[in-house]
């Protein structure tokens, strides 16, 4: 196996160039998939025989909850890479993905709460799934605050990586919370091993939305990472050249 790609990943300039090519693809895929999934889910999907039309919230609630957890997993993996190999790009990924993951957790919690009112008759219960998702949001806040509080870059990278890795224990708790405890929250809609219990007209738009949200997450994290790379490399000649070029184009490079 060739390890050159791994070393290249450590090069901010290489990352900046390659991510510049990926960003428009991811961004447009996200826009198209989310628009298509929303129209499909809101207009064409049949209504649920028990929940009526409030079930349509699933098309944003489930993708956001997926990304809230996948985003945290990304933080933990980046944390391991940043601790073991001292790769600066991993620290940048960790710092830039944290706020986006927090926003996804926020969406999952808010839409879940709005969905809970007509379905369970309450906005919030201290149930295992809901509580562990709230803890996930606080873990994100903790990492963001820690990163901002420590000004030394190396100590900040180390502290955030450790917190991200320790907090990963919350992910299996979220996943199995609906099985370990009696909860109001329904069990997973999607599993890898079984066919979904809902008709294709209902789960296909959900699949489109999930993929769209993944693309969205990727695009936004890349945008944030690219800016952070520029900030950290501001003294290098390639960033200077890029800034000089952007003056001519009105700063839109």
């Amino acid at each position: 196996m060739k390890w050159t790609f791994f070393h290249k990943l450590g090069s901010p300039k290489w990352f900046y160039e390659i991510s510049g090519r990926w960003l428009p693809i991811l961004g447009w895929a996200a826009v198209l998939l989310i628009l298509a999934g929303t129209v499909w889910g809101l207009v064409f999907a049949p209504q649920d025989y028990q929940q009526g039309n409030s079930f349509r919230i699933i098309y944003i609630h489930v993708p956001a909850a997926f990304l809230a957890q996948s985003g945290y997993l990304l933080l933990a993996i980046a944390g391991v890479v940043s601790l073991v190999w001292k790769m600066k790009l991993a620290d940048i990924a960790l710092k830039c993905a944290a706020p986006v993951g927090a926003w996804m957790t926020f969406i999952a919690l808010v839409t879940g709460s709005i969905w809970g009112k007509p379905t369970w008759g309450t906005w919030w219960v201290w149930d295992a799934r809901l509580t562990s998702m709230l803890i996930l949001l606080f873990l994100y806040f903790g990492i963001i605050a820690l990163g901002q509080a420590i000004s030394n870059r190396d100590s900040s990278a180390k502290a955030c990586a450790v917190l991200a890795i320790v907090g990963v224990i919350n992910l299996p708790i979220i996943k199995y919370s609906v099985e370990w405890w009696n909860t109001l929250h329904q069990p997973a809609t999607f599993t890898l091993t079984e066919k979904p219990a809902m008709p294709a007209q209902m789960w296909l738009p959900l699949l489109v939305m999930v993929v769209g949200f993944y693309c969205f997450f990727g695009a936004v994290v890349l945008m944030r990472m690219r800016l952070e790379v520029l900030r950290r490399e501001s003294r290098t000649s390639w960033v200077r050249t890029l800034v000089e070029q952007s003056i001519g184009r009105g700063g839109s490079a």
């Binding site: 969406i107 808010v110 709005i114 969905w115």
Partner: peptide, 20 residues
Amino acid sequence: AMGHHGPYVWSAYGITALVL
């Protein structure tokens, strides 16, 4: 109207759109 669930569905989608 979303079958009497309009306020719930539209507020959830509105907030999500705003955040995105």
